[in-house]
């Protein structure tokens, strides 16, 4: 069907309340929201860190050792400790939202949200155990 609706860039501004750029500092819930959104910066940093690790391993035993030494320097360690906390926050908040995005049906019945959430936690534990086993087995 052809759309006959014509949209213009004109917005009636007189009904709009001016929102401060710092609106997210006004309430704890807003701040928690921005904090949650900012976990993505730590996700990006950790991709960089993983790729540095992969590059160092490809570069030979010496470059791998240099990366391990660098990872123990105070600022990298502090950044990664913060990254760990933000990753946990990211995981928990993402899993909480999952049942709303993912409505699973068995037959015609929707699976209760609590079960979908629990499924994510079980998968998280299993994936973590698998990664730890792969990395740490001698």
């Amino acid at each position: 069907m052809a759309s006959t609706q014509v949209y213009t860039d004109y917005h009636p501004r007189w009904l709009r309340r001016q929102v401060s750029t710092y609106w997210w500092l006004e309430k704890w819930a807003y701040f928690a929201f921005i904090l949650r959104e900012m976990t993505c910066l730590f996700v990006a940093w950790f991709v960089v860190y993983l790729l540095l690790l992969v590059g160092a391993v490809a570069g030979g035993a010496e470059s791998y050792q240099r990366l391990l030494d660098w990872s123990a320097s105070p600022w990298v360690l502090t950044l990664n400790a913060a990254t760990f906390l933000f990753m946990i926050y990211h995981a928990v908040t993402f899993f909480v939202a999952a049942p709303q995005a993912l409505v699973v049906h068995v037959g015609r019945r929707p699976v209760p949200a609590r079960l979908v959430l629990a499924g994510h936690y079980v998968a998280w534990a299993a994936a973590s155990a698998l990664v730890a086993w792969i990395v740490l087995r001698a």
Binding site: V76, N80, M87, A91, A132
Partner: peptide, 24 residues
């Protein structure tokens, strides 16, 4: 969404191992 799920599943353990536990 897919990136959110895989990073949530795999990154906490990877950061804990390669970012904290091994360096310490």
């Amino acid at each position: 969404s897919a990136g959110g799920v895989v990073s949530a599943m795999l990154m906490p353990i990877l950061v804990l191992l390669f970012g904290v536990a091994i360096p310490l």
